[in-house]
Design a protein around this nucleic acid. Structure first.
Lengths: 191, 191, 191, 191
DNA sequence: CGGTAAGCGAGACGGTACGTCTTGTCTTATT
DNA sequence: AATAAGACAAGACGTACCGTCTCGCTTACCG
């Protein structure tokens, strides 16, 4: 498939620059407010020219999505406890664990971008939300197969669960902790 | 009570200017993208000086919250159908009805602001979310009193319901229509 | 003539406010840069409303000219030493003496106003320069009568003397001190 | 010599933008009042961003001084008539000739800036007055060498001559014409 | 091994919103 | 009527970030 890769002439893309950009993005997210995480700052921090930055990422949203993909993807394994509630609990607890402050600010940034720009919203959906929904969907589908949840409700549960998560994240209505994870798991997988 | 109001010296605040700002905000929201809804544009559209704008509203978030309070608040009456599911259904349908395109873009703007600025998040919580949560909370409490929902779940339901609403709104994962309202009502008020 | 003064109805003009404005102008000139001497600052410092300020003085230039008239006018007496050079020397030395830092900054302000506004230039000429020129002119005319200076040159000398004074003041090319006064006196009244 | 110039990295400064700014400044001076000659207007007229404008010129004074240097510098040649009076006459007549309305308004602007800001005064002295004083100083030195003027008076004459010029310009006490030039030349180079 | 072509850093550019500031006018109640 | 208080429309200020551009230099390949 992509094996051959059609080697193009000219100087190849600098892997060093790519890594520097992702690292700078993560570093800035760890240190500063979401509003201070802009293209100019990323370029400066990464010692990369804005030209290079814009050549490979067309917007801040793309940079952040790439950073999240690179750094945070692998962290959430699919649990298999035998019960829906157990699976949900473990999955949500793992999700909560993965949301360190830096990641949290990256999520804030893409939420802000998605809210104010329809195109960014699409990118976030396709490149970030989709995989999470697929994972959680699989857990719910298994629960539905065991009769622990209605099939229609399973589809809606995705929105309810991730909705409440982002709601807490964006509006800071409360902490995203194990208590929250357990309550949601219990509410969705009520007997 | 507060009737007397202790008349301050000097020229009183112009109600005309205040209304013009709120109307301009609504008009811009109806016509343009959220990103084009900035203080400069509001001032120009309202024929109001930037000084006046900043004197009374310290940020765009405050202007939008005021606009929402003035124009959209009174629209959602508390239903009383006798059942939790019925009440939820009616309330959510009314909520969906109130989200015309202009209002939707105002909501997008405050979501973006809340996501990227902790202070804005607090303002949105206190001046916008709080009343909505109180309304829906009343419905849920009535349901709990009738034994239609567990008391603990009632508290969580607030997050699940409004979470899924904002999630759809921000990430455009699906339409906010009666179908959504009915499904959520059914899922929360499952027998 | 002006004896009767046609007493008008209503509250009479506040002499207190007038004095406060002139005092505030002088105080600000003594403390700050010419650029910080604006109508807003004068009003605030004088505890006078801008309304009152603009009612009686139509521009900053008028306020400053009034301040100069009130505070600095009487200081320069006409000398009579018997020789042109002596008279010039004493007059210029007295002029130099009268230019304390506060007065200097007031002069800077009216120079700036005159340079950028033709109308202000006319006011400065009529209400400030005219009297100085008359005084110096009298000295020069006495010298011409004694044959110490050519009549035509006497007229021009006004420009040369006051010109070099303002030039030093505006562009800070050198100090306005007795040395300068004596040199100018000697040059103009050369034997 | 300085030919190599040590080429700095990055995009080089746009000569086009530089010329556009100077041309816009001159054009605005020709058409409008000194007060309407502000940075915003210059940027707009030159089709140059404010950022670019402020990057290369830190204040309006610097822009004007640059404009004067570029457009008006070369116009006054040093005369050599053989007599001080003749040299002065020619030099002052040429100076008068160079003061077209646009240039006059530029001079008004820098005079206003110098009067109200010590730093601006220094810049005007160093970048504008200095060369003029050097030119006129040379003429006077030649006169002193020929014994046509006392050496001490020669130094003072600089102030007297340029002082009276700026005095007329700023306070509009009279026209800057050949009559003025001839009178001053005669008075300074009196036999 | 020298030519060709793209990537890269540096940083200038036009554009434009930001939040602040001063101007001169106005609208109140009080004097 | 004049006052103080202070709100108002207007618009310039200087700063910041955006996304694009123009340089000279570097790093590959390909003939």
């Amino acid at each position: 498939m992509t094996a051959q890769q059609a080697r193009r002439p000219g100087r190849p893309r600098s892997e060093r620059a790519r890594q520097a950009v992702l690292a700078a993005t993560l570093a800035l997210a760890a240190e500063q407010e979401p509003a201070d995480l802009h293209m100019e700052a990323i370029a400066k921090r990464a010692n990369v020219s804005k030209e290079t930055l814009y050549r490979w990422w067309h917007s801040k949203t793309e940079v952040i999505l790439d950073t999240l993909a690179e750094r945070g993807q692998q962290t959430i394994p699919l649990p298999d406890t035998g019960t829906l509630r157990g699976d949900l609990r473990d999955f949500l607890r793992a999700t909560v664990d993965s949301a360190d402050p830096a990641t949290g600010r990256l999520l804030h940034s893409i939420a802000a971008a998605a809210a104010s720009d329809e195109n960014a919203a699409r990118q976030v959906r396709d490149q970030f939300l989709a995989t999470r929904r697929a994972d959680l969907g699989q857990i719910l589908r298994r629960g539905a197969a065991r009769g622990e949840i209605d099939h229609d409700n399973a589809a809606l549960a995705l929105d309810l669960i991730y909705g409440s998560l982002w709601y807490r994240l964006i509006f800071r209505t409360g902490p995203l902790d194990y208590r929250w994870a357990d309550q949601v798991a219990a509410a969705i997988a009520s007997p």
